[in-house]
Nucleic acid binder design. Structure first.
Lengths: 157, 157
DNA sequence: AAAATATAGTCAACTTGATTGACTATATTT
DNA sequence: AAATATAGTCAATCAAGTTGACTATATTTT
């Protein structure tokens, strides 16, 4: 991609590239910290599980995938030591998925990396512009969803 | 997702939601126009092919996928009537993938929809803020890539 | 000019992350 | 008490990509 192509990109392409670049840097750095078995979707799942865990169905709705897909993901993350299943306190059918100690380590690492990345952007465009950027993105999301908050995270491709 | 969760999102999550919401609206609307068999990745591929077509390898590099994957995509899009293969003028091994008339219809429709979407955002945040938004996203991409232009489009997930 | 190597594209087999459908056990509503 | 709904699992399948092997043509080296 050359400079003039890059400069003439529409907003949606820019959002794609921004998201790509950000999530890519995050996961390269998580990998360097020994969390190479974590995918972006897992990060969003952990977000849904903090601080008190979540049921499979809750996670499925949050991510916009089926409960069966969540079930597989949970099995994988349990084997890799990031999450545990607990009995639901009131519903014998249900299970609560919670983070293990290792799971919390990823969450903390992720937060630190994201903070660093935002900090770096502040050094580049300033705190005020970053604030405006975030506000404008919120407005874009809110309006594109016709005044409703987004219900799920999964990007389609 | 409730309002306070939404308001405290980090930049990367906001970028994910913005990209998701935008690309989703685009493809819902393309679908309404009879282009329901087009996926986001096809749109980015068409971008690479305008105005003079592109070889399989060029498309593969642009999208960040293998040439075999491109080959399959081209077969699919050829069957659906969006692209054609042409002999390469100088290299007998090569083929140029070009848009058909139907392919151009999608490109035009896409441009119109994206323009409308940007227009709607301008009504909401103003032209100046949209301009700043795009500039800041470009800086984010440029800097996250350590001063290099992005070489490929594909979001990982 | 001939030989060696590289490149564009295709075919086939496989992997991965999701899907749909059928099922069990428990909850909730009628 | 019976009927229906819900949480989660198991199995089969699908879709979009991958890797590896191959053919035909180009390019580089000798």
């Amino acid at each position: 991609m050359n400079h003039s192509v890059f400069n003439e990109l529409d907003l949606t392409s820019l959002l794609s590239l921004s998201f790509s670049a950000s999530i890519n840097e995050l996961h390269v750095r998580l990998s360097e910290l020994g969390f190479g078995d974590i995918r972006p979707v897992h990060g969003f799942m952990f977000k849904c599980m903090t601080p008190n865990g979540a049921t499979g169905i809750e996670i499925a709705e949050y991510l916009g995938i089926t409960k069966q897909a969540v079930s597989k993901m949970v099995d994988y993350l349990e084997k890799s030591g990031y999450v545990m299943k607990q009995a639901h306190p009131t519903d014998k059918r249900g299970k609560i998925i919670v983070l293990t100690e290792r799971g919390w380590l990823v969450v903390k690492a992720k937060e630190e990396i994201l903070t660093e990345m935002e900090q770096r952007l502040i050094e580049n465009i300033g705190a005020e512009r970053l604030h405006m950027l975030k506000e404008d993105l919120k407005k874009l999301v809110y309006e594109t969803n016709e005044g409703k908050l987004p219900s799920m995270f999964k990007p389609i491709w």
